Simulated assay, not measured.
Amino acid sequence: MAQPHRGAAVETGFLRAASDRVVWLEKRIAGAFVAAIFCLLIANVVTRMLSIPVIWIDELAVHFMIVGAFFGASIAIREREHIAVTLLRDALRGPGRTVLVVGVDLMVILFIGALAVILWRWFDPLGILAAESRAAYAAATFNFLYDEPTTTIGIRKVWFWLVLPVFCSTALLHASANLTGTLCAVREDA
């Protein structure tokens, strides 16, 4: 069985179509963040040249880079373009290769599932909703996620950290579509 790849003609229905639509949007969002980072860095150079540095530009560029990287990581999962050692996969043929590809897809899904559990516990949406206030929540749980401000921008970091549940959701969609595509290709070959 040939490994499914970007542009494979395997029809996997709703899951693949949803993944296609999401990755289309993610590419535009990631591109917008890259453009914003470029503009911020140019503004930083200009303001420093004029001896009026704007300190928060550096921090905003770093946060935008992190957010953009998570969108890029989700896209890479969909396209199967993450850095990988493919020596074993390239050496295998037929059923062995298929088992390896399915195993890798399952491991990615398990990793994203573990990340989802960690994020659920960290963001604790039920706990924050039940608390009287953010300060009361932080005092009771020692979870300062919702109160911790950025150093120079002055807004709460949670607004940038929200990319994590978004990444988790989109990466799970893409990994599931990849697994489904692999299994459908196996079924068609059988």
Rank of each mutant, 00 (worst) to 15 (best):
Q3E: 11
Q3F: 00
P4W: 00
V10Q: 12
T12A: 06
T12H: 00
T12G: 02
G13Y: 05
G13C: 06
G13W: 03
F14P: 01
R16H: 01
A17Q: 11
A18V: 02
R21V: 05
V23S: 08
E26L: 14
R28Q: 05
A30R: 00
A30S: 06
A32I: 05
F33W: 02
F33C: 04
V34Y: 04
C39R: 02
L41D: 04
L41A: 01
N44V: 00
T47W: 04
T47E: 09
M49P: 00
M49W: 08
L50K: 13
L50A: 15
L50E: 15
L50H: 11
S51N: 13
I55W: 08
I57G: 08
D58N: 09
L60S: 11
A61D: 08
F64I: 07
F64G: 08
M65F: 12
M65D: 13
I66L: 15
V67S: 11
V67N: 13
G68L: 04
A69P: 00
A69N: 10
F70D: 10
A73K: 07
A73F: 10
A76Q: 14
R78A: 06
R78F: 00
R78Q: 07
R80C: 10
E81M: 05
I83Y: 09
V85N: 15
R89C: 03
D90P: 02
A91S: 14
G94W: 02
G96K: 04
T98P: 00
V99N: 08
V99S: 09
V99Y: 07
L100H: 08
L100V: 09
G103W: 05
G103N: 08
G103Y: 02
V108H: 12
I109W: 07
L110K: 02
F111M: 12
F111H: 06
G113V: 02
G113W: 05
A114V: 13
L115V: 09
A116G: 14
V117F: 07
L119A: 12
W120T: 13
R121A: 09
W122A: 12
D124S: 10
P125C: 03
L126E: 15
G127T: 04
I128A: 03
L129D: 15
A130W: 00
A131E: 10
R134N: 12
A135S: 09
A138R: 06
A139D: 12
F142H: 15
F142C: 02
N143P: 04
F144A: 14
Y146A: 12
Y146Q: 13
D147C: 06
D147Y: 03
T151L: 14
T151C: 05
T152P: 07
T152Y: 14
G154N: 14
G154L: 10
I155D: 15
K157C: 04
W159L: 14
F160S: 10
F160T: 09
F160M: 11
F160H: 09
W161P: 00
W161C: 08
L162H: 10
L162T: 12
V163Q: 09
L164C: 09
V166I: 12
C168N: 10
S169T: 14
T170S: 12
L172M: 13
A175Y: 06
A175H: 04
A177W: 00
N178R: 10
G181T: 15
T182S: 13
A185D: 03
R187E: 15
R187C: 13
R187P: 05
E188C: 01
D189N: 03
A190M: 08
A190C: 07
A190Q: 07
